[in-house]
Design a binder for these strands. Structure first.
Length: 306
DNA sequence: CGGCTTTGACCGGCGC
DNA sequence: GCGCCGGTCAAAGCCG
């Protein structure tokens, strides 16, 4: 995975595009010169050329903005990555398998040390201390992942649409969070072992934190439902059991690049496994659709609209 | 009537 | 051993 590769590609694209338009501009200038030398240009042609030049200037400015955006994105990525690297250096042994039975202990200790407690991080993040103390490999091998749903503040339901069919089997108010936690089992397939816990974030009640345990042994029941939540923005961070939980608040990502420095990715847990970020970046980098969309977006900004 | 939700009871792990 | 706590069970109620 190499962020710079696609960034470079994009930049190359920009540069090339610049060149294309500069070529066009030069041709026009040559053409103008030719006309000015030999023939009298018509005023109509002058106007259209002037308009083209203006358009070129505008497009160049937009292109410059896009370039800056890309640069800033890359900078943000590098910052995140350096933080990760630093974290990984400080916490080299962070591959421990968590145990649900140790959760409580972890939570109570985390509540003291990390009053933020957003999204119940304490559930999936284990302190270095405890991971060193009590490794229990045989406990939960099931994949644990978290999904963050941004909901309307008025939406008090604990329903997270993820495309699967769930049956609620319990609800509990936990100690560290005044909002109740709902327990779901996958009811699409009787043999599906997946469980889900849904609870509102302590810090931001508009965010639903869904914790998935296990993996579905059946196809998604409704792919459409997964993306149909109009008022919800879902971010999935698939965490291999013990990895610290990350919240990437993409709901703000559509904002301008100026905001992107303030915009998160909101990392509720200060530590993010590098491999996770790399995986995410790799997914984007290798996704031809993403590239195509990026190229389309850039070229759509640059090409003159008819 | 079947499936789902609600909710109090129960169970087991953990700390003291 | 006891109390606390999270997780689960299961009866009752609701709804289409």
């Amino acid at each position: 995975m190499d962020c710079s590769s696609w960034i470079n590609t994009s930049l190359d694209l920009n540069i090339n595009s610049h060149r294309v338009y500069e070529d066009v501009l030069q041709k026009k200038e040559v053409e103008n010169n030719f006309f000015s030398l030999g023939l009298r240009k018509s005023s109509v042609k002058e106007e259209s050329n002037g308009a083209l030049v203006e358009e070129l200037k505008r497009v160049s400015a937009e292109n410059k903005k896009l370039t800056e955006m890309l640069t800033e994105m890359c900078e943000n990525y590098n910052t995140l990555r350096s933080n990760l690297t630093e974290y990984m250096r400080n916490n080299p042994d962070n591959k421990e398998v968590i145990s649900t039975s140790k959760k409580r202990k972890s939570e109570s200790s985390n509540n003291n040390s990390n009053p933020l407690g957003v999204n119940g991080n304490s559930e999936s993040s284990s302190t270095d201390e405890e991971t060193c103390k009590k490794p229990r490999e045989e406990t939960i091998k099931a994949k644990v992942s978290k999904v963050y749903h941004r909901t309307e503040p008025s939406d008090i339901s604990l329903i997270v649409k993820d495309g699967y069919q769930w049956r609620k089997y319990g609800q509990k108010v936990t100690r560290d969070n005044p909002s109740p936690r709902a327990y779901f089992k996958c009811s699409f397939a009787p043999t599906c072992p997946v469980k889900k816990k849904v609870q509102r974030s302590v810090d931001d009640p508009s965010i639903l934190v869904a914790t998935y345990e296990g993996e579905h042994n059946h196809p998604i029941s409704s792919q459409m439902e997964a993306t149909s939540g109009s008022n919800r923005c879902m971010t999935t961070v698939s965490v291999p059991c013990s990895a610290p939980t990350v919240t990437l608040d993409w709901t703000k990502s559509k904002s301008s690049c100026k905001e992107s420095k303030n915009m998160n990715p909101k990392i509720h847990s200060p530590e993010v496994p590098q491999i996770l970020v790399e995986h995410m970046a790799s997914s984007l980098t290798n996704d031809p659709n993403f590239r195509a969309a990026l190229v389309a977006a850039i070229s759509g900004q640059m090409l003159p609209k008819n």
